[in-house]
Structure formats: structure tokens, C-alpha cells
Design a protein around this nucleic acid. Structure first.
Lengths: 94, 94
DNA sequence: CCAACATATGAACATTTATTCATATGTTCA
DNA sequence: TGAACATATGAATAAATGTTCATATGTTGG
């Protein structure tokens, strides 16, 4: 049994995957990096809503970002993101 | 990009991992199956609260249950649960 | 430097959700 | 069968969270 802090952190991590909007953002970033505005268009969402969610994703190190001119480009942070999502998809197929 | 329904289901699945109480229950069941009352004691929780959460875990097929006398024994449903949690833990170690 | 563009942020509101309390359902054993 | 035990469930309350609207911050090109 891990200590309470690790359990809490784990729950916080999965909580971030537990929202359709964030999941859609993650999928949009699966193959290629995208800037905020394009994300908003692709997902038919407000720029503000996207930005709020990106902030959450970034704070959990699920995505990273870099500036490119006026835009800020977001991308998936590491392979764990893909693995976790893939495992989730496998679980659903049953 | 998966269809909206799959994304929704995925988010719903991860939402279930995204709660400390449920995560604690899952860890308690990691090594051996346990009945509701024992879970409540181990986790210092109300029997009612545990039962409510077990219901959610079971509806997502993360745990299974069987009756044994007066008690009902709960156990982890499949290996995906362990894999998903393990991947989450790996992600945190950084 | 300033106008236009791109993103971030804060407050407010609405919705979701975990827990508690009371009670119902279901099982065993005398 | 009835009492005692084990679990489930429903309603109510409190807390957490996603979106919107308005606005701030930051960058580029003229």
C-alpha cells in the first residue's frame, strides 16, 4: 500500500484524463503538435476553454509547449501519456 | 481521432481512477480480495461510503464481486487495472 | 511605439460528485 | 421464522470543477 501522498497524486493524475475535453485535446495532439487557436477550431471550443484545460494538462506534465512567433505550440509530453490512454482503450474493448 | 463516444467512455473510465478513495480501494485489493466491512475498517471509512464507491468501480468493471456467506468479497477485475495504475505511478516518478 | 493578433487568467455560474444519514434488501443460524 | 449481521441504496448536503465572459499579458510587423 503506497503512502497517502502517492495515492493522492495518482488520483490527481487520472482525474486529468477523466474529462472529455482534455481527452479530445490529448488525441488531437497524438500525431502532431498544434497551437492553441487551431486546437480551439478543431475541437469547436472557445479559446479560453482550451487554454484553461491546456494549463491543467501542462501542470501535470502531460503536454509541453514552446513559443513559435505569436503562437504557442503544444505537444504530448512523453510516452506514458500514450501508454495510459492505450491501456484505457484496451480495457474498454470488452 | 476516435469517435466522440469512445473518447467519452475513455474519460469516464479514467474519471473513476481519479478519486483518492477509489484509488485506495483499488490498492487494498491489489494483493488479495476483501469484503466490504474489512475494506471499511482498513480504510477508516463508512461502510456506506465504501459501498457507494464499490458500486462505481464495479459498474466500470474495475472490480468484481462474489458472495461468501453473509459477506460479499470484492477483487480486482483484470490486469488492465494494474497496468494502468503502474503506468500512472511511472509517470509520477519524474 | 502602436495596432493587431495569440494566449493566459480571474471571477461567476452551473453542474457533477463524494459523503453522510437513514433505511431497505438479503443471508445465516438458532 | 425471527433476530443479528452484512451490504446496498436513496435523498440531502457540501465541495470540486468546467465553461463563459471580460480583460490582462505578451509578441510581431509597420
Amino acid at each position: 500500500m503506497p503512502d497517502e501522498e502517492e495515492i493522492f497524486d495518482l488520483a490527481e493524475l487520472f482525474k486529468i484524463f477523466g474529462d472529455s475535453t482534455r481527452m479530445r485535446i490529448l488525441f488531437a495532439l497524438f500525431d502532431h503538435e498544434i497551437c492553441v487557436n487551431d486546437l480551439a477550431e478543431i475541437l469547436s471550443m472557445t479559446q479560453s476553454a482550451v487554454s484553461h484545460q491546456l494549463r491543467i494538462l501542462k501542470s501535470a506534465h502531460l503536454v509541453g509547449s514552446r513559443r513559435e512567433g505569436k503562437s504557442i505550440i503544444y505537444f504530448l509530453a512523453d510516452e506514458h501519456v500514450r501508454t495510459i490512454i492505450d491501456q484505457g482503450r484496451e480495457h474498454i474493448e470488452e
